[in-house]
């Protein structure tokens, strides 16, 4: 019996002005992206807390990424820059824990970049697929791989 290939669970924290609109743009342009990505819409990526990111990993996410407005174009002036700094800090914590900071990434898109949103989703899915299930998820015995 052949083994089912590993399909990663990925959580994407997106801002409602750029990331989420870009996901919408992908939709109405009929651009598909991997179903592995579960989107959490936020009023601004400045709302992303390190705890939210760790929480996702603790509850079985194999990868997490944040999609913010391009630098200099945040609807809330600098929420995206705050998110960027927190993502960097969260990466260090994930390395410290042994989960691996490379399972977390930060991206910037505009609302119209549906194609870029889809490319990012595919890139992260491929990256995490190559890394395999998160060590936390493996330990939970919940790996779908």
């Amino acid at each position: 019996m052949s083994e089912t290939p590993f399909e990663p669970e990925i959580t994407a924290f997106v801002c409602q002005y750029c990331g989420d609109m870009a996901a919408d743009s992908a939709g109405w342009n009929r651009i598909s992206y991997p179903a592995n990505v579960k989107i959490v819409r936020l009023p601004c990526t400045g709302k992303v807390d390190v705890h939210h990111i760790l929480n996702a990993f603790e509850h079985g996410a194999d990868g997490v990424y944040v999609v913010a407005c391009p630098e200099g174009n945040c609807h809330h002036i600098n929420g995206n820059l705050s998110a960027k700094r927190r993502v960097t800090y969260a990466k260090s914590l994930l390395d410290e824990v042994g989960v691996g900071g490379n399972r977390l990434e930060m991206f910037h898109v505009t609302a119209a970049q549906g194609d870029e949103f889809a490319r990012i989703a595919a890139e992260m899915t491929e990256r995490i697929r190559a890394l395999g299930p998160s060590p936390v998820r493996r330990a939970m015995g919940k790996s779908s791989g």
Binding site: H51, L54, N55, F57, E58, L93, E96, V97, G98, V99, P135, V136, R138, A139, M140
Partner: peptide
């Protein structure tokens, strides 16, 4: 959260 994950692993 870090401790839980580390100990889980």
């Amino acid at each position: 959260s870090e401790l839980r994950m580390a100990r889980q692993m």
